[in-house]
């Protein structure tokens, strides 16, 4: 029983690390734009499909595939920013969100046109057996996921508080008009934030598909959903909150699946979101940091 708890918690944390990365990407964009980008997940899916296609057509070196996934996500993300968000900086939030939904459909259409099967294999990160530590087993992928999430959080923190771009990003998040008056090129910062978020999303996507060793067009919706859920649990617009929300979601899902069965997995996650939205604890409504 205790061992199950420990094992599930660890597996949950590893999965949660990838949710945390998805949520961090979401939060970066939401923080500066106050807009929800529904196409966030589908852009990641596009990157992962590009990597899958390369693995079938050319080579399946994992670093090459990681590079393609990130590059593909960034390209798709730029397309989304230029079409949905750049023209609406001062306009309607709903228009931007609906436009991002339209691009979601485009991405799904494009990938299913080029690769029409429902499911494609994706090369795994390692061929190694899980490490056994006493009765517990640790998958190497899980360690990589946790390490990547940790490294990204650390790098982001340094970037935010030590770099010129980080200063601009915080300023735009805090008071966009004041940022313009301070001489910050706000549209450029917004584009760069979008690219950064897409790159982090691409990394998260690659971690997920190479752990699951398969890709389907559902990855788009799945990534948007998990990222949005983790971001909301952590309190909209807070980066530390996004990380905590992602990890909490992962652990919660792992335990619900173990104790209540696979059907309960998503159900419990939505139940948690429902409870949090109904209860609205302080951190969900006040954190912007």
């Amino acid at each position: 029983m205790i061992l199950d708890l420990i094992q599930n918690s660890f597996d949950g944390l590893a999965m949660g690390a990838s949710y945390a990365l998805l949520a961090v990407g979401f939060t970066l964009v939401f923080g500066v734009l106050r807009r929800v980008n529904l196409s966030y997940g589908p852009a990641i899916m596009f990157g992962c499909y590009a990597a899958t296609w390369v693995s079938f057509s050319f080579h399946s070196n994992i670093f090459l595939l990681l590079g393609i996934a990130v590059l593909g996500s960034v390209l798709a993300g730029t397309y989304v920013e230029r079409l949905c968000f750049a023209p609406h900086h001062k306009g309607s939030a709903i228009a931007a969100m609906v436009a991002s939904f339209a691009l979601w459909m485009q991405f799904e259409e494009v990938v299913t046109l080029v690769m029409p099967k429902h499911l494609y294999d994706f090369p795994p990160m390692f061929d190694a057996e899980p490490l056994a530590i006493g009765p517990l087993s640790l998958r190497a992928e899980a360690l990589v996921m946790l390490a990547c999430a940790l490294a990204i959080c650390f790098a982001l923190h340094r970037m935010l508080y030590r770099s010129r771009f980080g200063l601009a990003l915080r300023a735009v998040t805090d008071a966009p008009v004041a940022a313009q008056l301070a001489g910050i090129n706000v549209p450029r910062v917004l584009l760069l934030v979008f690219l950064l978020a897409s790159a982090i999303g691409g990394l998260a996507g690659w971690l997920i598909v190479s752990t699951h060793t398969q890709v389907t067009p559902m990855l788009g919706m799945w990534s948007t959903l998990k990222g949005l859920l983790a971001m909301m649990i952590g309190g909209l617009g807070s980066l530390p909150g996004a990380v905590i929300g992602g990890l909490a979601l992962g652990v919660l899902e792992a335990h619900s699946q173990w104790f209540l069965g696979p059907q309960a997995r998503d159900l419990i996650a939505y139940l948690l979101l429902f409870v949090l939205l109904a209860w609205r604890p302080r951190w969900m409504t006040t954190s912007h940091g």
Partner: peptide, 21 residues
């Protein structure tokens, strides 16, 4: 600007750094 419009969640020093962006 009218009504100050400082960066409320940034330190005083960071506000000045932003001014020198």
């Amino acid at each position: 600007p009218e009504n100050r419009l400082v960066f409320p969640n940034m330190t005083v020093l960071d506000n000045l750094h932003a001014g020198a962006y």
